[in-house]
């Protein structure tokens, strides 16, 4: 499998947040963590032609705002690989690399599987590409108006949103 994505898929997403507060409130899991492992995950599709393959990303939590135990590693799914193994991202949701540290805003399927709740559902604090993921975080989505160049302030805002009910 390749170690970087070469393609970009467009997707109609289930959530289109306009504020960080809304994304924190809606996400079942909000955690700051460090990526300790990335491994091939499940595949889905009805034929070889439409098959997609997922990546399983394991985080060691550094700080839990909601949804998981602080002591246990957290594994979530990210996309992905096309049928022929070519790597892709969805709506600019960058791949996770071992050693990345950041905020992860995760949804949970009825089968218990965790996955980023939105293409904007990741904020990298330490890694190759810091800041929010997604196609255009400066102009659309939950990071508009957030001081994305000041990660400590962003972290404070995530905690504040998590503390509100």
């Amino acid at each position: 499998m390749p170690d970087h994505p070469e393609r970009s898929a467009e997707a109609k997403e289930r959530h289109s947040f306009t504020t960080l507060d809304a994304m924190v409130t809606t996400s079942p899991v909000v955690v700051r963590g460090t990526v300790v492992k990335v491994a091939p995950g499940r595949s889905a599709g009805e034929s070889d032609a439409d098959r997609i393959y997922f990546r399983n990303v394991t985080l060691q939590p550094d700080e839990v705002v909601k949804g998981v135990a602080a002591s246990e590693p957290v594994t979530f799914e990210e996309e992905g690989y096309e049928a022929d193994g070519t790597g892709y991202v969805v709506n600019g949701l960058r791949w996770s690399n071992v050693g990345d540290q950041g905020w992860y805003f995760l949804d949970r399927g009825e089968d218990g599987v965790l996955f980023p709740i939105s293409s904007y559902g990741k904020f990298v604090l330490r890694g190759d590409m810091r800041g929010p993921t997604g196609h255009d975080p400066a102009h659309e989505g939950p990071w508009i108006g957030q001081p994305i160049g000041r990660p400590d302030t962003v972290s404070a805002h995530v905690r504040q949103s998590g503390a509100r009910k």
Partner: peptide, 16 residues
Amino acid sequence: YDADYGNTSWFGRTSC
């Protein structure tokens, strides 16, 4: 195509 692609953040996707 359409299929059960599992729990994803999306309803549909288009790629090249």
